[in-house]
Design a protein around this nucleic acid. Structure first.
Lengths: 229, 229
DNA sequence: GCGGGGAGTGTGGTCCAACCACAGTCTAGA
DNA sequence: TCTAGACTGTGGTTGGACCACACTCCCCGC
C-alpha cells in the first residue's frame, strides 16, 4: 500500500469514528506527518485527494478560516469526476441527460409542497422574469432545478443532480447557440417552470414528474442534442 | 490558482481535445513537470487526484503496463466520494438505499431482454444456487445487480449504481448479522432474482421494476435498516 | 550462432530541507 | 492608548536525492 493511502485511511477512520467531524480541523500538515511517521509530501497528496472529493478545504494563513477543515460538498466530487469521464468520451452526454431526467422527475414526484426549498424555487422563478441576459437566466435555471431536487429531501439525489448538471454545464452552454429564438424559448421555459410548481403545490406528483421530463427533454431536443454526440 | 490545478487543467484539456485518449500514456512525471514549468510535486498531486477519480492509473517499472495511463473507472471515483460523505454523516444511508431503489428499478424497467448483460446475470444466478458462504453469495449478488443495471444500457446509471453499492458495502455486510435465518433469506433472494429476470424476459418492465424495488426494500427491512441510522 | 545473466535505463514512490506568501497575534514604541 | 512592526503558524512550491521496480540490451560463455 502506498504511503498516501495510509494517510487517507487514517483520515477516513477519524471521520468514521466521529473524532473528526464537519467543521473540524485536521492537524497541521507537518504535525500530521510526524504523527503518522510519513513525509509531509504524502500527507499533502492525501489531503489533495480529499480536497478533490469535497471532504476537506485547505486555507492558508492563521485564524478561524485557516488550516485544513472538514467540509461536505459531495457535488464537487461527483461533478468533476463525471465531467472528466465525459471528457474521455466514456460517459455519453445522452446518458447524462437521461439520468438527469430520471432523478429530477423522481424528485418532482416526491417534492413536499411545504418544503422551504420550494419557496426558494418560487423566488428564483420571479427573478427569472425580470432577467436580461442568457447567461444570468441559465444560472438562475440551474439554481431553480437544484431547489426542486432539494424539495424531495434526499441528499444523495440532490448531490447527483447537481453533479450531473455541472458535468454538462459547458456542453449545455454551447447548445444555447443552436436555439433559433432565445426569447421565446426563455418564455416557454418560464411557463413550464410555473406549471411544475403548480403541479407540486396541488399534490399531483405524477403530473409534476411528467412535466419535468417533458421540460428537460424538450429543451435538449430543441437545442439539438445528438447532433454533436 | 494553485499549481497542481494548472496541471489538472492541462490534462483535462488534453482529454477533452482527444490528444489523450483511453489507454494513452501521460508523459513521465519529470518530463511533464519540465514541460509545464512546474515542480514534479505539483504534477504528482494532480496525478493523484485524477487517480482517485478513476481517470489515471500509475504503474512503476518499464514496459506496456508501466507509466501513467488513462483509464475509465467512474465507479471508483463516485464510490469513494460517496463512502467518505457517508462517513461524515452528511449522506444518510437511508437516502443511499432510496436512490439505489430508484436507479435499479428504472434499470430493470429499461433492461433489454436480448442484452448480453442479462445472460451474464442468469449465469451468476446459477452460480448462486450452488454457493456456500454468506460472503461469496453477497459478492455474486453484487455482480448480479450490476449486470442488471448494465442491461439498461446507460453508463451513467450503471456507474452510479455500482458506486452506491460500494459506498454502503461495509454497512450492508454488517447488516447480515441481524438476519434471523440466513439460509431462508438466501433462498428467498434467489427466488426473487429469478422473478425479476422472468419479468424482464417477458417484456414486462413495469413488473420488473416493482419486483426490484420490493426485493431491495424487503432485504433492508428484514436486516433492520433504520435501527442504526 | 545461441542462450543466459548482469548492467543499464526509465518509471513511479518517498523523503528531506528549504523557501515563499499569507493572515492573525503579539509587542514595543510613539 | 493607539499603531506599526516583528513574530508565529499555516498551507504552497520547489529542487534534489534516493529507492524499488521492470523491462531492455549487450556481453560473455557455451
Amino acid at each position: 500500500m502506498r504511503t498516501h493511502q495510509l494517510v487517507l485511511q487514517w483520515i477516513e477512520g477519524q471521520l468514521s469514528s466521529g473524532q473528526l467531524a464537519l467543521g473540524g480541523r485536521l492537524p497541521a500538515e507537518r504535525a500530521l506527518a510526524e504523527q503518522l511517521q510519513v513525509s509531509r509530501t504524502s500527507v499533502r497528496e492525501a489531503i489533495r485527494v480529499l480536497e478533490a472529493m469535497g471532504v476537506l478545504r485547505a486555507g492558508v494563513g492563521s485564524g478561524p478560516d485557516a488550516g485544513t477543515v472538514v467540509i461536505a460538498d459531495p457535488t464537487a466530487a461527483l461533478g468533476s469526476a463525471l465531467r472528466l469521464h465525459v471528457a474521455t468520451s466514456h460517459l455519453p452526454v445522452k446518458d447524462i441527460v437521461e439520468t438527469r431526467v430520471l432523478l429530477e422527475s423522481w424528485a418532482a414526484s416526491r417534492a413536499r409542497p411545504e418544503s422551504p426549498a420550494l419557496a426558494e424555487a418560487a423566488r428564483l422563478l420571479e427573478q427569472m422574469d425580470g432577467c436580461a441576459g442568457t447567461e444570468a437566466f441559465l444560472a438562475l435555471d440551474v439554481r431553480f432545478h437544484l431547489a426542486l431536487a432539494d424539495a424531495a429531501g434526499n441528499a444523495v439525489v440532490s448531490a447527483m443532480m447537481g453533479s450531473l448538471r455541472e458535468a454538462i454545464q459547458d456542453y449545455a452552454g454551447r447548445l444555447t447557440g443552436n436555439l433559433p429564438d432565445w426569447d421565446s424559448t426563455a418564455a416557454r421555459l418560464r411557463a413550464e417552470h410555473r406549471g411544475i410548481l403548480a403541479a407540486i403545490a396541488s399534490h399531483d406528483g405524477g403530473r409534476a414528474a411528467q412535466l419535468v421530463a417533458d421540460h428537460i427533454e424538450g429543451y435538449y431536443r430543441e437545442a439539438g442534442l445528438g447532433s454533436g454526440a
